[in-house]
């Protein structure tokens, strides 16, 4: 263990991390949490480094979170937003990235609707690549900030029961969380209509439930996912009315979880669709703390990839 150093050049997904890597990111993030409570919310850790936010999908939350994280580490940051895909614009992703790299950034944070795009960038880009969400594949910083939130509440990130409810099929957040909690040895239940929760997910280490009360029973964490109608999820169940009846979380269903259980949601939430309005605002809800933790986790990731931590040790 003494020889362990964070050895990743990129953050492509939770799948690529060891449990030790995850612990290291969380511990580093914990040390960064305090910075955001200071009067002067800035440390010089990444002074002189350049971070590019390369976003091919609409995103305010994640993009802003990375931007604030980079700035609190004193990195220079530029936003490159393109709601239309590079392909439709006529320039290939390779050309877009090579053009940006001609300006010598250190880290490229990419969000893209096509799964695997961050891995594709690593085949030719020189920068460190951070996956800020790729298609239905992974959203590793979200799973890490979720884990940090759980760790703050339960003082550990092991031995937990995590229930994830909703559109598993189209959710990169679900995938990253399932993989993370499997790696940490936690019990994961996934709950939703069968059309959105294929049985094959059990091979990733999750248990499938079609009944929400069974699925959240004795859970420490109930994580609700947004119904992603923009990804065509609407065809997978008959109506929001019926979905809400079977898969929304309300106080009655939430009572099936442990007394100490917490409610999480990666946002943006659809109030009174997947989540009962009053429960979302109750003291069981850690939704806003998740957002706050996003800054610390993204600071940790940027720092570990290009901070002094990775300068030659010997």
């Amino acid at each position: 263990m003494g020889d362990y150093i964070f050895s990743q050049n990129h953050l492509l997904g939770i799948d690529h991390l060891s449990d030790k890597d995850i612990d290291t990111i969380l511990e580093t993030a914990e040390s960064f949490v305090e910075i955001s409570t200071r009067d002067v919310k800035k440390v010089p850790a990444l002074k002189g480094k350049t971070v590019v936010n390369l976003f091919f999908e609409n995103s305010t939350r994640t993009r802003s979170s990375f931007e604030i994280a980079a700035k609190r580490l004193s990195a220079d940051l530029i936003n490159f937003n393109s709601s239309v895909s590079s392909l439709k614009k006529g320039e290939s992703l390779r050309d877009t990235v090579l053009t940006l790299e001609a300006m010598n950034p250190n880290i490229i944070v990419i969000r893209h609707s096509a799964s695997g795009s961050p891995l594709y960038l690593t085949t030719f880009a020189k920068s460190s690549i951070v996956n800020a969400g790729d298609g239905f594949h992974e959203h590793p910083t979200q799973a890490l900030l979720d884990a940090l939130t759980m760790k703050q509440v339960f003082k550990t990130i092991r031995g937990l029961r995590v229930a994830i409810v909703g559109d598993i099929l189209h959710s990169r957040v679900a995938r990253s969380n399932i993989i993370l909690h499997s790696k940490m040895g936690n019990e994961v239940s996934i709950i939703g209509p069968p059309s959105l929760v294929p049985r094959e997910f059990e091979k990733m280490g999750a248990k499938v439930h079609y009944n929400i009360e069974d699925g959240v029973k004795n859970a420490d964490v109930v994580m609700m996912l947004r119904v992603q109608s923009e990804r065509g999820a609407g065809n997978y169940f008959p109506s929001i009315r019926e979905y809400r009846k079977h898969f929304a979380i309300n106080r009655k269903v939430f009572k099936c979880a442990k007394k100490s259980a917490i409610l999480m949601h990666p946002g943006p939430i659809n109030r009174d669709v997947e989540i009962d309005n009053t429960l979302a605002d109750s003291d069981k809800s850690y939704i806003l703390q998740q957002v706050t933790n996003g800054i610390a986790v993204r600071m940790a990731v940027l720092y570990l990839l290009k901070g002094d931590f990775n300068e030659p040790i010997n």
Partner: peptide, 11 residues
């Protein structure tokens, strides 16, 4: 379609 498509997030 199967475990790999689900895990890797490809339709």
């Amino acid at each position: 379609e199967g475990f790999i498509s689900y895990k890797y997030g490809l339709r």
